[in-house]
């Protein structure tokens, strides 16, 4: 069970207070109508499944109800950092090391 630092509540909470909401930084295309079916399909369905550093969207569902991002190592389950929506991660996968 993860121990997650909520950047809004400013303390660690147990995983059962949170919901995972998939990969982070999946921006909705600004003009969906201009997307080809392929592009729209990629936005909808295609997600990374890296061994190692991964950026995830979580929500503090039973707490402040705010969404935020987590950078997590999918191998060791270490949470490297948490950061708010709109911010960029400081810990990123080495190039070529993301698969």
């Amino acid at each position: 069970m993860f121990h997650i630092y909520c950047p809004h509540c400013a303390e660690y909470r147990e995983e059962e207070e949170f919901h995972a909401s998939g990969q982070a930084h999946i921006a909705r295309p600004l003009d969906p109508e201009a997307c080809s079916d392929k592009e729209w399909g990629e936005y909808l369905y295609f997600r990374k499944n890296p061994r190692g550093i991964h950026h995830e969207l979580w929500v503090h569902a039973a707490g402040c109800r705010k969404f935020f991002n987590i950078t997590r190592d999918t191998q060791t389950y270490e949470i490297k950092e948490v950061y708010k929506i709109g911010e960029q991660p400081s810990v990123v996968a080495q190039s070529g090391n993301s698969k």
Partner: peptide, 13 residues
Amino acid sequence: LEWLELYHQTEWP
């Protein structure tokens, strides 16, 4: 409710 918050917080803040 979570869906509305998701779009408000991440797409259209």
